[in-house]
Design a protein around this nucleic acid. Structure first.
Lengths: 189, 189
DNA sequence: TGTTTATGTCAGTCATATTGACATATATGC
DNA sequence: GCATATATGTCAATATGACTGACATAAACA
């Protein structure tokens, strides 16, 4: 049967699919002999799924708040980063988000039009439009970030500082660019 | 010097932006007196950003592979979970993805039409369409999952088992439903 | 037999992203 | 000062992924 190596059943409705293999211990066959347990296929798959579930839930509540105002997740990202780095330029933002300027344009213009973000001409380089949150923008930013911060804080508090440090290390390892890793420079510990 | 706690400048082009004041708020100050360091606003913000950067990079390479075949991230998720739980029903999948059946429909029909996924009538409950990957689907699933598994494995290997355990704990803490947490049953530690 | 469930579909809409082409103002190097 | 490069913006077309609402069918269940 194809279902020997399966994770546990999903729901009563699929009970038919099987009591299948209990905890699926052996799906975690080593990728190579001698690989430590935490690098087995099963553990790696779990990590993939954890990222999916956690990210989905992490963005869920902000998405709802934004939807009430006719905004989406893309607006959130812009508001977040402009709040984080006030006075950043458009190209800085593009560099972080890694989307095209046309994509950013629609979102950003909307935020400017609706009074969440202000654009000021740069003084050193007058081609630049430096971005800052208006009061209205800050208010929304706080609302959204509060939501996510509480979620993270709750998780952090529940697991303690060592687990948090492990989380940080793994996240840094997943990022593909040194530039991004550098944003989390060696912190006071 | 309100910018004490400000993240470092983003790029040479905004160096001028540096001492930009402002809305700094209490960034970095404890949320409440007595809160441990890892629960300070700055640390929580970093976690928010890490999730963004890590998720963005985590999905980047699969997105490119999929784009070559005219597929998107939504197809990836379907292929992934059908590969993970072969014989799952449509409602199981909806339950995991937490999208509407109409949204799933377009993606799933396309995958069936293009021969990545097979739908078989359930034997116990004949209303159900049980989903499995075809050979073609398995091939793509392996290609995509391999990519992500390698990324995770590299990160895991670099940081070691304790950090990985910390990562797991935090991710579980971020998930909002016990049902999802239960997918990662208490493992041998 | 009547109701609920699992699935599917039609239609309309919105948000987010893409590519490509082109425009303007400013900076910078020779 | 002129040529080129950079920062930003805009128009147009297109794809993808999500939503709501309405309705349809088959099978299970009470």
């Amino acid at each position: 049967m194809t279902d020997i190596n399966r994770p546990k059943p999903l729901s009563p409705t699929t009970a038919a699919t099987g009591p299948l293999s209990g905890s699926g211990r052996d799906r975690g066959r080593p990728l190579k002999t001698g690989n430590p347990l935490f690098l087995r296929e099963e553990e790696l798959r779990q990590a993939i799924e954890m990222l999916f579930y956690a990210y989905r839930d992490f963005t869920g509540e902000p998405d709802r708040i934004l939807a009430d105002r006719g905004l989406g997740r893309a607006h959130h990202r812009v508001i977040y980063f402009v709040g984080r780095y006030p006075g950043m330029s458009v190209s800085d933002l593009l560099n972080i988000l890694k989307i095209t300027k046309q994509s950013l344009s629609r979102v950003l213009s909307q935020l400017v039009t609706e009074g969440y973000i202000r654009q000021d001409q740069g003084t050193v380089d007058r081609r630049q439009r430096l971005l800052t949150l208006t009061d209205k923008g800050q208010e929304l930013e706080r609302l959204l970030t509060e939501t996510q911060r509480k979620l993270i804080a709750r998780a952090f508090r529940a697991v303690g500082p060592e687990a948090v440090e492990g989380f940080r290390e793994v996240m840094l390892g997943i990022m593909s660019s040194d530039e991004d890793r550098a944003r989390f420079g060696t912190r006071a510990e």
